[in-house]
Design a protein around this nucleic acid. Sequence first.
RNA 1: GUGGGUAUAGCGUAGUUGGUUAACGCGUCAGUUUGUGGCACUGAAGACCGUCGGUUCGAAUCCGACUAUCCACCCCA
Length: 431
Amino acid sequence: MALLKRPNGTEDILPGSSAEWQALEGFLRTTAHINGFEEIRIPTFEQTELFSRGVGETTDVVQKEMYTVSAKESTFTLRPEGTAGTIRAMLQNGLLNEALPQRVYYILSCFRHERPQAGRLREFHQFGVEMAGSQEPTADADVIFLANQIITELGVKDVELHINSIGCPKCRRNYHNALREFFLPHKAELCETCQERLDKNPMRLLDCKSPICKEIGKDAPVILDYLCDDCKAHFEKLKKHLELLGIEYSVDPKIVRGLDYYTKTVFEFVTTSIGAQGTICGGGRYDGLIEQLGGPATPALGFGMGLERLLLTLHNQNAESLAEPDPCYLYLVPMGEKAAEEAFRLAADLKREGISAQTDVMGRSLRAQMKYADKIGARFTMVIGDNELENGEAVLKNMRTGEKITMKLDDSFVEAFFDIEIADRLGMEED
RNA sequence: GUGGGUAUAGCGUAGUUGGUUAACGCGUCAGUUUGUGGCACUGAAGACCGUCGGUUCGAAUCCGACUAUCCACCCCA
């Protein structure tokens, strides 16, 4: 039988690294909570229209990257991002009728049919937050603070925060016209994609990597000069608050987000450590989205953080692992039928008390059992044979130090071992 | 969707100008007298050399297609 393989662009997270994922997720949860965000959990698939309406009909994500599946009489789409579904859930459950602002976070996987590459998967995991109800730039600073706190406390290096304002629909229209006017005379010289972009989304021209387009675009008009007074003031106040919080940033007028819903503030945390896909975190304000999805006109903003990219960055920077798997604490080594029964029962007693304990299920010799205990990193072992059963005493061996102590095999055993485990854990922390 | 690189045991690799039983390290399993792991030693299992087709007396080796994978474009987290 041929072996079935996992689909292209997906990953298995194996026992060796799941501890690290758990640690990361735990850290994200507590940090989000400290910042006033509570978890929301939403379905993996939604009605396709939610994304075409929310993310934008013309975006690449909607046009060519969605996994749309039909089941029976309906068709659904696997979420390509978290914002649309989260806003939908908030509206459907009336969260915007509660005290504002509403702050929610989520950890979920997203699906996009792209060609996989470094830092880009077809199923990837995202931590994201959304804050709804405030139009104040302080809200923007509040959200960026959380992203910044996460990245700095994880010890990620070589990350820069880039911010920009792409204005409200009004200023953007003016800017688009200015851009078209600027580039039109050079249209023939532009690369093929840029010729298309000129029509579809002229702001993308500024982001092109082709040297010719770059050269032509050098003196192109800058969005920041086209912002209306309101958007300009918003951006200025955001910058002031970032400075107030001691968050370093640079203004990058070339940042353009590919999802249609963004307005005013957009930002990215970018690293150079993981190849071409260096955006670890991206987000911004989307004041029009909630209304677009049929809710009351409500300003909001949020960000998404790619967890694979985050871990990839930490690994490439040789950061200390976030967590090591917790080992087995006591491995019982029985010799003989009777002892095996006793060891089996004893291991169960330990497990009921929350102590991770194992014993032989392979029918192995003493020597082989000791080797196995060593390989799985067991902290302690204890051999139990006929002598031990008779004397009611057994020798506990510390596998790290080789130290041996004799313990009574009566009712006091579990409690006594519990104390030893605590002492060992404390000792480990000191190392 | 468009480029380019790569494809040999679970992992990492070797395989000389096509030539007979495809090699090595790590890992796995068993053992080195049922009384204590790490080191060492002995042995074993494990590969239709990515798939299909072609050239040839003969292909892991040359050619083609496909698939997977990696990197980049595009796009985004």
